[in-house]
């Protein structure tokens, strides 16, 4: 995990190099396409302006993530315990993914207002599905021979859940969480585009209207950095919680 992915690093350097050189060679105006060096500079120099917006977006993502985790876990357990519940909920879960979030955003702003609630809800819709489905699949992937063993031990569902199914499904849960963390920003930013008073999405829309393209890119850079940080944090959390996985 700590090792540098050399091919990826080289590709990034190559893309940034071509971008930087292309902007200078074609004499592109900054408001059309700023060079990467300028974007990094703006992202750093304008930190005092960007940070309050980033904090709002980050809070929305974290709240959406938290809400998704605390709702996805009980539903996945309930669907695993009662297959009829899974049959009942499955179409809704799939439908929640089939509806484009963009289509819901204006409605959510109308219903939940311009504040954080509508963005948290957007993030929740996006994150909930991968976590819930991954966890459910994790429970189902449990080796039947272990189920027989627990059955013969006379273990209750709750005991089997805590001692067998939950640890068994943890790697899948974290896989889902990583996917969720990766896409969480989308929900929050779309919500901010539609209607907000703060946040990186709001900053992007504002800067775009003023042709401050470098600031738009700087906001994207901050959003990417936040996403990567959360992704790595999830990885660290996974390593700490699933110690046995690393040792096998």
């Amino acid at each position: 995990m700590n090792r540098i992915n050399l091919p990826a690093a080289l590709l990034v350097v190559l893309i940034l190099g071509v971008w930087e050189a292309g902007v200078y060679l074609l004499s592109l105006p900054v408001f059309i396409l700023p060079p990467p060096s300028r974007i990094v500079l703006v992202a750093l120099v304008r930190t005092p302006d960007i940070f309050p917006h980033a904090l709002v977006t980050f809070s929305e993502i974290l709240l959406g993530l938290g809400l998704a985790v605390v709702t996805a876990i009980p539903l996945a357990i309930a669907m695993f315990a009662k297959p009829n519940l899974e049959k009942a909920f499955s179409p809704f879960l799939v439908a929640s993914q089939a509806i484009p979030v963009f289509a819901l955003a204006p409605l959510l702003v109308v219903w939940l207002g311009y504040g954080m609630a509508s963005k948290v809800f957007m993030a929740w819709i996006i994150i909930f599905f991968p976590i819930c489905v991954s966890l459910l699949e994790g429970f189902k992937s449990c080796d039947p021979e272990f189920r027989v063993l627990f059955r013969l031990m006379g273990a209750s569902f709750f005991k089997t859940l805590t001692l067998l199914y939950w640890p068994w499904a943890l790697p899948r849960f974290f896989a889902g969480l990583r996917v969720g963390v990766g896409v969480a920003g989308i929900g929050a930013v779309i919500g901010e585009w539609v209607g907000a008073q703060k946040g990186l999405g709001f900053l992007m829309i504002q800067s775009n209207a003023r042709l401050q393209t470098d600031l738009v890119f700087a906001a994207i850079l901050w959003l990417t950095a936040m996403g990567l940080a959360l992704w790595h944090l999830t990885g660290i959390l996974e390593t700490i919680i699933i110690k046995w996985k690393k040792e096998i």
């Binding site: 021979e145 272990f146 027989v148 031990m153 006379g154 273990a155 089997t160 001692l163 046995w244």
Partner: peptide, 26 residues
């Protein structure tokens, strides 16, 4: 009691905790 071809030890438990499973579940 049942003992299968596979040892069916859970990797997230120590050997002692694996052995204690029947007591934990009952």
């Amino acid at each position: 009691a049942y003992m299968q071809q596979k040892d069916l030890l859970l990797p997230w438990f120590s050997l002692l905790d694996n052995a204690l499973l029947p007591a934990k579940t009952s």
